[in-house]
Design a binder for these strands. Structure first.
Lengths: 331, 331
DNA sequence: TTGTAGGCGTTATCAC
DNA sequence: GTGATAACGCCTACAA
């Protein structure tokens, strides 16, 4: 592998000049620059980023640590990040923590020891101490989708409580009186906030939360399925269900379909998060839509801002959600 | 940020000893080792991977460059890679080339200059010269899902032609006589092989390929939609469609549904690749299933083998596909 | 404008 | 078994 010294020798200049040509921004005699470029292409020289990173103690890589690559919500958000990153000269690498604190921890360690230029993370719980390691190391961090209790960092969220309230109110207005809630882990703010919205809507409607109609699942398809099954098997069935993320909504639907129950006639259903090809599913699904691309874009923008002014006050961006009424909830 | 020298000073040993303790595998006095570990945790020392990479010219990162993070086929495959990687001591970072040769090129460059320990790639075309750059640099590479013309590297594929033939034969057996094919870009082997399987099945059935029933799209949802629309608008409609990937199948279905055509009565449909929550879609979709997790797992295994024996003959693994008959194709 | 030289943090090669 | 020391490839004062 050729180094700048090889290039320098071939071009008849010093290594410093090669470096200057390669990095631009410093005046170099055009003739020399041309000789350097010729030598570069003749040798097929490629800069060794590792050495450069060591010297400058920064890379041009952003790590995006997401909790589930199989969830379309996150992959769609990634597009928003990538677009900002590439126009700011960064490359994005995705790390899949799989909702597993150990994997998450090891990816944070990697981001740290590889000196990543920035990290966007959807944490696996509301208490991820490792994020403070990044902050202490001066690595710009933006937290997305879920809030951290013990960390003050730039954060991009959606209006979970409001979205959930809209969804639940809609179910109330359709005449449902036994509205169940399949929510996510209690250690995730996205789950608790959505549950709070559900509770608030019920309360406003003069209904109270019936704990026998609440299930805590894991934001995955199977979890939604199992929760729905449990709702049907234990005690009198609900007449409606609010599921707090896309995959659990799918799981719940699958359970209902498999039991031969009719949606929305036997059980109405509303989900949180969009669902790909929702219009092919029968009945079509009423959901609370999130601006996924925008979440990614804003997160990336905050990351670039943070890199420029490390000591600025952290920002907390909350984006709006909206209820998309379709067939699964209307009688 | 503490360095190995800080640790050494605090522990009263040399930097070399600290390094030895940290890396294990070399005999160190237990007393010293303990002092070192104490100093490490006291200082919160974390190894600087960049410096280490420079010195050893290797990282513990694998880059997985996939052509579409939004395609469930790839994300599911990633799980297979991750599982092997973590048990072999590697971390996996995902790069989304988005079927874009420029992005792909820049990720390959990053993998190269960041000295990644290995690369798994689903190339954006059958002619990605940059892959040779990796090979020449001695970086282990495994190509997945798509074959490269100009590169000899370990490759993991599925039996595209056979799967496509099964699918098409099934449509023939259901009595269809105007079977259309929505296939992918002609520069992707997965598309051409699947088209070949389609053609072979027709030929065996005594039907010939009618070019007016063939559309070349882009393996995306919108592409499938547009292709289906074009099939319906230009000339007499087909009585069946074989779509050569999951997203295009979805797109074609959406078009049919929107036109008010009945599947399978007006137009039968079979897709290639599994589709998430396929059983919620009405009618349920007949598809050619691929062992996605296994594709990832085998690719990762080849990568570790390649790292151990760089000069071994490249392997070409072809995994079987199977036809899953559901409602969308049976009359 | 260009060249010289030192150092980023680590590991590997020596002596001891 | 342990400690100096050099080197990995690059960038950047500093000097010229």
């Amino acid at each position: 592998m050729a180094t700048i010294y090889d290039v320098a020798r071939l071009a008849g200049v010093s290594a410093a000049t090669v470096s200057r040509v390669l990095n631009g921004h410093v005046k170099v005699d055009p003739t020399l620059a041309e000789r350097v470029m010729a030598a570069v292409s003749q040798l097929g020289y490629r800069r060794n980023a590792v050495a450069r990173n060591l010297r400058t103690s920064r890379t041009s890589l952003w790590a995006v640590i997401i909790s589930d690559v199989q969830n379309p919500f996150f992959t769609s958000m990634v597009r928003g990040i990538e677009d900002v990153a590439s126009s700011a000269g960064y490359s994005v690498v995705l790390c899949n923590s799989d909702e597993n604190p150990d994997k998450e921890s090891s990816y944070i360690a990697a981001a740290l020891s590889e000196q990543m230029a920035g990290v966007v993370i959807s944490p696996s719980s509301n208490q991820v101490d490792d994020v403070n390691l990044l902050l202490e190391a001066g690595c710009p961090v933006v937290v997305i989708d879920r809030e951290l209790d013990n960390v003050t960092a730039d954060t991009v969220l959606v209006d979970n409580e409001h979205g959930a309230e809209l969804a639940t109110t809609h179910l109330v207005e359709q005449g449902n009186t036994r509205i169940a809630c399949i929510t996510g882990p209690q250690w995730l703010s996205s789950a608790t906030q959505r549950f709070d919205g559900y509770a608030r809507a019920l309360s406003k409607a003069g209904q109270s939360v019936d704990e026998t109609l609440v299930r805590y699942a894991d934001f995955r398809e199977q979890g939604g399925y199992d929760a729905m099954a449990s709702l049907l098997d234990d005690g009198p069935a609900p007449d409606a269900v609010f599921a707090t993320n896309n995959l659990m909504t799918i799981g719940a639907m699958e359970c209902l379909v498999q039991r031969g129950l009719s949606v929305p006639d036997d059980v109405a259903i509303v989900g949180f998060d969009s669902i790909p090809w929702a219009d092919l599913i029968r009945p079509t699904l009423t959901t609370v839509a999130q601006p996924t691309y925008e979440v990614g874009r804003r997160a990336a923008q905050l990351l670039t801002k943070r890199a420029e002014s490390p000591d600025a006050e952290p920002e907390r961006v909350v984006l709006p959600t909206s209820l998309q009424v379709r067939a699964s909830s209307t009688r």
